[in-house]
Nucleic acid binder design. Sequence first.
DNA 1: TACATTACTGACTAGTCAGTCAGTAAAAAT
DNA 2: ATTTTTACTGACTGACTAGTCAGTAATGTA
Lengths: 216, 216
Amino acid sequence: MNTIEISESPSRQRRKEARPAELMAAALELFVERGFAATKLDDVAARAGVSKGTLYLYFASKEELFKAVIQKGILPVLDQGEEMLSQFQGDAGSLLEAMLLRWWEMVGSTHLAGITKLMISEAGNFPEVALFYYENVIVRGRGLIRSVLERGIASKQFREMDVETAIDVILAPQMMFTIWRYSLGPCDCGKQDPEAYLKTHMKLLLNGLLTGEKKK
Amino acid sequence: MNTIEISESPSRQRRKEARPAELMAAALELFVERGFAATKLDDVAARAGVSKGTLYLYFASKEELFKAVIQKGILPVLDQGEEMLSQFQGDAGSLLEAMLLRWWEMVGSTHLAGITKLMISEAGNFPEVALFYYENVIVRGRGLIRSVLERGIASKQFREMDVETAIDVILAPQMMFTIWRYSLGPCDCGKQDPEAYLKTHMKLLLNGLLTGEKKK
DNA sequence: TACATTACTGACTAGTCAGTCAGTAAAAAT
DNA sequence: ATTTTTACTGACTGACTAGTCAGTAATGTA
């Protein structure tokens, strides 16, 4: 007489597998918004729609949750970038533009963008995670751009240059634009369309990078 | 009871006036290192060589201390920049280079550099301070670069360009370089001389900015 | 029916830290 | 010599929160 069981409980089942991902998404938002120390696990759990106890079923501590957010969030992006590099048919300038646009689609325009700001803010408190991030995101990311620049220099499309510095000059505006959204962005609401901005940025960069005649 | 005190007690007197500055310096270091929430006022006081009670003689709360660190630290720099702009005799390219170098001397190479990272990290938790920073540092700072670019365009030294985007492209590598020192910098010790880096960066930028013949 | 398992809960504890305040000590004023 | 003022101290408190764990409730299994 107790229960007539409903044979399929698909939502329940799906939820169970989704829990850690939901918790990590909630944690990312709050960590980015408030910083690690100022984020309460009660709030993380509440935003994911569970209690704090549940959080501890999936993550051993606040710090483990932090690590998981960083690692699981960003690594797939690098994998995709490296695949793109090996597959792409076309000139180096187009490849550079395609990569930056792809990065915008996958990271810049999503919540993952917050990881950049989060890592910068918290690197001092988590040197071990910072090292992981440095080796698996920064080094690999710079490697991607380096390959593109070297391909362009070899094909004479790009002029000779100090490649390492050029990587910084290319990546810095991208990163600042990303960080901006999660810091002082709310102060200047009047910013234009991000994709238009990226194109203008690319044009300015390329006019400094391209060999001779102006592009476009 | 009317007393006009003309008394000199030099070492004691100097210390008294220096206290708030010492506390702000200690606070800046720790805020930058650990973030606002993770910084303990006992540690700030200890680093300044006083007790926590003394800190509360000069600052009404942790938040007021934070505001003072940001405001008192960075405003003089903007004043100097604006004076430099109005005084400088020379072409726009040299002015731009001189300003970025001056900025490096006064901010980039000092502890003040940490304010950039601090503000980015904590903007979400202090919207009021963020707005102050935006209006008094970001807007004024961008205004400086805008003036230089417009001067250069008017004199035909610089090509026509989207000025607002160009400002970003110029400032972003500077800011990232600054932020880097206080976040992931410790992970890659093998960085070269900062001034050499800034020169290379300038050269890459100018080759994208200058009208025709290459400079230098 | 009885027992086991899975997923989750939320009150509780132990430790931390911003902010307070009664008190000290030494110089300055009277 | 006595009182006032200045500069500072550090033990204390109240609020807050990471992490725990005994318990609930639903479903699965024997």
